[in-house]
Design a protein around this nucleic acid. Sequence first.
DNA 1: TTGAAAGCGGTACCAA
DNA 2: TTGGTACCGCTTTCAA
Lengths: 371, 371
Amino acid sequence: MLWVGYNVSAVKQTTSEPAGIKEIAKSLGISIGTVDRALHAREGVSPRTRAKVLKMAEKLNYKPNVAARSLKLNRRVRIAVHLPQQIQSFFDPLRDGVRAAAAATLGVTVDLDFRTYPRLGEGDVELMEADVARHFDGIILTPGNPAAIGTSLQRLAEHGRAVVCVASDAPRSSRLACISVDAFVSGGIAAELLGMRLPNGGAVVFITGDLSTLDHADKLRGFASSLATEAPQLSLLPTIESHERPKDAYQATLDLLARKPRPAGIYISTANSLPVLQALEQKRLLGEIQVITTDLFPELIPHIESRKVLATIYQRPFTQGKVAFETLIRFLVEGVKPPPSTKLAPHIVLRSNLGLFLNHLSGPDESVGAG
Amino acid sequence: MLWVGYNVSAVKQTTSEPAGIKEIAKSLGISIGTVDRALHAREGVSPRTRAKVLKMAEKLNYKPNVAARSLKLNRRVRIAVHLPQQIQSFFDPLRDGVRAAAAATLGVTVDLDFRTYPRLGEGDVELMEADVARHFDGIILTPGNPAAIGTSLQRLAEHGRAVVCVASDAPRSSRLACISVDAFVSGGIAAELLGMRLPNGGAVVFITGDLSTLDHADKLRGFASSLATEAPQLSLLPTIESHERPKDAYQATLDLLARKPRPAGIYISTANSLPVLQALEQKRLLGEIQVITTDLFPELIPHIESRKVLATIYQRPFTQGKVAFETLIRFLVEGVKPPPSTKLAPHIVLRSNLGLFLNHLSGPDESVGAG
DNA sequence: TTGAAAGCGGTACCAA
DNA sequence: TTGGTACCGCTTTCAA
């Protein structure tokens, strides 16, 4: 802390000029070749020399120059991105986030290889198996069914590939890291908002894709848990699984509305909310029943604007893609080990802040994505 | 779009083996120096040669090697960061965001120079004036009083420095960009939440620092505007200005509570919310009256956990710092002109998602900051 | 207007 | 076990 003048202070951030391999060599009176060998624990260096070099590197604040390294090694970092064709409103901006982060990368040539399979849990394993032989250093993917994909992930790891999961996790697999929205919290938010809006009680229902997907199960846990504490006046009806099929979701909703008690609130935990809204509209219950949806896409906008949908929980796909890429590239280039799991905070989109998220739907935009 | 197999598709990002400057030179029988000059439109190349080179570059799919470029240029960017000592709960994480983004920067050596002055509008101009002579390429700062700081900004611009405003704007100044939370929307969110919680109507009050600060005025506009449309059952009492003085805020709240009608809801639009909460507590009205606060700091946590505070509108200082840095470095290194104003979406912090934001208070954490 | 060549900071190979 | 050096692709200076 360096004080300048009377009440004006300054803090200098940089510890010191980051040194290079050359400075280390000179200050020890040895050659840069030896320094290189010592730093990388290659064979042919005496332990004493190695120790000296490491200490000096520390002292001089040595920082390898990634540009020089990747130039010499002519290293192009190849990153594969395996994502489903389906749910474009979510995965397209996620891809944009990856692209944007890659474009902002200096000093390393990045090759992105986007690969697509039909839908979560359908074709993903096949694609991975087919691609094990391809040349890439790391991969970003969304595991559909963790159980089914586990062996493939294992194989990738054995082949030395760094795996970053995005949007959903494959726990206890050999993945390097996972970037996702906190699903438990997402469910909790939905419950809290419904509780706020339904002070006089009633029944609520949880509609999801498939409870075998970790993300969906976590949302249910968060929803139920938060209902119990934040909104004890609300009771939870049996969960509906649509298996991400619009027709199933539509029919299941009609069935639901025919039964008693009719729910006072609905939380749809996947992007597959339109069929549910259609069923509600058909039964003239849209606006009557409080609805919380997930994610944001053009068809949802008028429903939020007209207050037929109370809120949507936005999972920030662009940011997820961006962070996933940044995490992976840092590991590949600098060897920085990321935290095993990075949980983003979902955005609660209401009518009043809806506008902030709309420009994002058409193209990549840092303003919402990064924040 | 290249289709592989039956229902497994692939998109390859790279078209073919990208050529370098050397290949272009050889295939045209000229020197690499000329090729470089042509590609970058530098002076001293005949238009004919330039055209030839550009065509060949296109044909051979020329892609510059970013590693070689950044190695040769060995860029060193100096960035000054001028922020107040005050309101540490906000500006410390903002600094952390800048640091984190700088640490993640590849291929460029970044020198950060953190400079501190006592408080917004007090010592900021002096510090800038004192630092005009220092050597730096760009600066990140929070303009306190835009009017007072205008001339200094002008001078900085004339000296060729890129200025990025963060947290608050200095409109019509020569700043390059501004990163801030959308204040109008923040106010709108507060109104919408209060409307959700107070369906039976009542009066609400807006407590702020100083309406001459653009940010505060915008929040009021957003609050009033959203009340009218989202919560017409609520009426708006006269605004209270605390001028960021805790004692004033405390006394003004006591006065408010003594008057009729007593407000059913309060929105505090600055971080200076504790005195208000204390006054409420003293009058045994905490929990009775719905309160929305701004920002997040340790003392606020128990109030949210105990539901005495309905929600807080978190302005994401870490992310603001991160985005400000990313914006500035992109401009300095790649010459990319940013949008003049980037509005981040504030986070709505409720009881159910509070936990996600807490780790952030102690130290830098990408998980919330980047998302 | 153009060519030739020196280096940026590492890595890797060959000689000592 | 070490030192010396060529080279990765590009930018830039100096000479032609």
